[in-house]
């Protein structure tokens, strides 16, 4: 399989009034052709910032301190705003959690799609653009595309807006689609619709998807591979089944155990004690050490190295060091 995107040892910090937030501290992953990669983590894990850094969309005060983002053989971390604009939408597209704030309220939905086409496909005529926009609206399951074309975002419901966002994101057939919590703001039944739509479209247009989410249910229904992040650092990655059924890292395990199982009744739910670390003064060792039931002295002092369990499955945890005998989880 062909590698589309390579993120190497990414470090991102955000300078704020209350101090420097070390949002991402050394995260690496690859994205292959036509796969879905899920990046899982809670708020403050750095999952969103990592992807904003890839797209050059860091918030004010944010900057990449170290690391490379290799897209089609080029390191795009030092690209200018103009160069990034040619990549955004054409090669890599992004959809966000809140479709209302990511659509322009003063432009019709049709204009927002054709604007994207105008920017990246200047060779198209106005009529071709309009036809393409109608085709896209139809593809994302918006009924009466001809009528909806001239309407404004506020005339759409939440689920429909997210469909519009997807149609804009896919307008120029990008190789990569980054979906940042695409269904978090939506109701369960609408979430199911959007997830089905994304799966269907992925087969049709053959893009790779990076889906960023905290919902492990969404992960297990969408992803081929999973990267787990915590406190700005890489925790575990592997194939979907490896991460869910041969879980290595205590954090991943705790996360999976803290979701109630609908099939069982009268279970005792596990909960990870404590609170995520403050990334203004992140812990020296493993960020999860303070909350980990199997924490060792080394975990509090040294950042764990990565241990490999299969070609695809890696975890960053001292329990798998030779010196921690019999430390491995089940």
């Amino acid at each position: 399989m062909k590698k589309l995107l390579e993120v190497k040892n990414m470090h991102v910090s955000i300078h704020t009034d209350s101090g420097v937030i070390q949002a991402v501290r050394g995260v690496s992953f690859d994205l292959y052709e036509s796969e879905t990669l899920a990046i899982v983590g809670e708020s403050g894990s750095g999952k969103s910032i990592t992807n904003k850094a890839i797209m050059g969309l860091l918030p004010v005060g944010g900057r990449i301190d170290e690391g490379e983002v290799i897209l089609n053989g080029r390191d795009i971390t030092h690209f200018s705003e103009k160069e990034m604009n040619m990549i955004r939408g054409a090669e890599v597209s992004m959809i966000f959690q809140d479709p209302l704030t990511s659509l322009n309220p003063t432009m019709t939905v049709g204009d927002q799609i054709t604007e994207m086409l105008m920017l990246h496909k200047p060779e198209m005529t106005a009529e071709q653009r309009k036809n393409r926009a109608l085709e896209l609206l139809d593809m994302v399951g918006i009924p009466n595309p001809a009528e909806r074309f001239g309407q404004y975002p506020h005339q759409f419901s939440g689920g429909m807006r997210q469909r519009v966002m997807i149609s804009i994101a896919l307008a120029c057939e990008p190789r990569i689609l980054i979906a940042d919590e695409p269904t978090t703001a939506l109701d369960v039944t609408i979430q199911a619709q959007i997830l089905e739509l994304m799966k269907k479209l992925q087969k049709k247009v053959n893009t790779s998807i990076i889906i960023i989410t905290h919902n492990l249910g969404v992960v297990s229904s969408m992803a081929d591979r999973v990267v787990v992040m915590y406190g700005g650092r890489f925790v575990e990655c592997g194939d979907l089944d490896e991460v869910f059924y041969q879980t290595k890292h205590p954090y991943t395990k705790g996360l999976l155990d803290s979701i109630p199982n609908l099939q069982l009744s009268d279970q005792k739910l596990y909960s990870i004690p404590g609170t995520p670390p403050d990334l203004i003064s992140p812990p020296h060792g493993c960020p999860f050490a303070a909350r980990c039931e199997r924490c060792m002295k080394v975990c509090e002092k040294y950042q764990p190295s990565e241990y490999e369990f299969s070609q695809t499955h890696r975890a960053s945890c001292w329990l798998y060091d030779e010196r921690a005998k019999g430390g491995a989880l089940i």
Binding site: A289, C295, M296, K297, V298, W318
Partner: peptide, 12 residues
């Protein structure tokens, strides 16, 4: 150092 750190609830 590869031994359990013991009770860490105070820091949580």
């Amino acid at each position: 150092l590869f031994t359990p750190a013991g009770d860490n609830t105070a820091k949580q």
